[in-house]
Simulated scan of single mutants.
Amino acid sequence: MKLATLRTANGGTTAALATGADSYLALPAADVGALLALPEWRQVVEKTAAAQEAHQQVIAAVDADVAPLLPRAGKVICCGLNYGDHIQEMGRELPEYPTLFAKYADTLVGAADAVEVHGSGRVDWEAELAVVVGSELYRADEDQARAAIAGYTVANDVSMRDWQSRTLQWFQGKAFDATTPVGPVMLTADEAGQHFDVRGYVNGQLVQQGNTSTLVFGPAQLLSYISQFTVLRPGDLVLTGTPGGVGMGMTPPRFLKDGDVLTTEIDGIGQLENQFRIHAPAAIPANA
């Protein structure tokens, strides 16, 4: 099944089930994260779907305003340098351990939302598969971590490279508010294949393409590793890294411009399409 979080007419959000007929069925939870926190969330979805013809609210896909999939995610943890080709283009060695950093829920935006960036002139793209946690994990092995995956979604770890390169720590270049598109749906793990094709486009031009079979650390490995030092809970989000083709790795480097459209897609899950509004920093006088 595919689950989404939709904005509602009253300014709130609701979890929703994609019906497969160009529509969504509203579910009794504020968002997908809140739904996953219910112990029997699958049964809740099935019961609601069974009652669809009677009285449940059906929303046409063309009328659906897709919100960030997990607008209140407790933890958003990202893995950098996890595809062999991306590691090479960044001039680094294969890592022994995952390179991790964190974002906040405030960074997340919806699949079709415009993205406003203030104060950066080097805005880069990073198409990624993201993993949604479905049950609590702490000091878990890989089999336990695999069983705790609720599903998978599409993300783009948009990075402000000028901020990222100011120090050895990446955080400040990765955590700008409302700059990380996630969605449009979560494909549940029981319907997912073993690997995914991940692609990124700028204004329709293919710039990134990779398959998760080449990840250094796969989803279950990442969740298991993270759970050794922090508990993961239902509705937490883990971004698995990006394949080669980022703008900073090009010669010369290429970055998003005001008005550019960034498209991120993963076969079997869906597509993000976000237009960017870049408000670059003012030039600093030479004698400053």
Rank of each mutant, 00 (worst) to 15 (best):
V32W: 03
G119S: 11
V132G: 09
P234M: 00
M90V: 00
A30P: 13
E53D: 04
L262R: 03
Q56S: 01
E273A: 14
L256S: 02
Y24Q: 04
G84Y: 05
D236H: 00
T8S: 03
T251F: 11
L215Q: 09
T5S: 12
T153F: 12
G268Y: 07
T188R: 05
A29G: 06
S120R: 10
L27F: 06
G210E: 06
L232W: 06
E89V: 00
T212C: 07
S227W: 13
G74V: 00
D267R: 15
M90S: 10
T14R: 11
A178S: 15
E46I: 02
L137I: 08
G151K: 02
P95Q: 04
V238C: 13
G33T: 08
D162L: 06
A15G: 10
S224L: 14
E96T: 15
D157H: 02
Q271V: 12
A21D: 09
L3V: 05
A60K: 08
P98S: 07
P252K: 09
T251R: 14
E128M: 09
A283G: 12
V32R: 01
G84T: 09
A16N: 07
T214R: 12
V231S: 15
S135E: 12
R199W: 11
Q56N: 02
G249W: 10
A21N: 12
N211E: 14
D65E: 11
A130N: 11
N211F: 09
R277N: 14
N211K: 04
F276G: 00
L206Y: 02
G200Q: 09
G270K: 08
M160Y: 00
W41S: 00
R166A: 11
L262Y: 05
G134Q: 12
T240W: 09
Q194D: 14
V45Q: 03
K257I: 07
R92V: 08
P184W: 03
M1T: 09
T167C: 12
A67Y: 01
A16K: 07
G259R: 01
R254F: 10
E53M: 03
K174L: 13
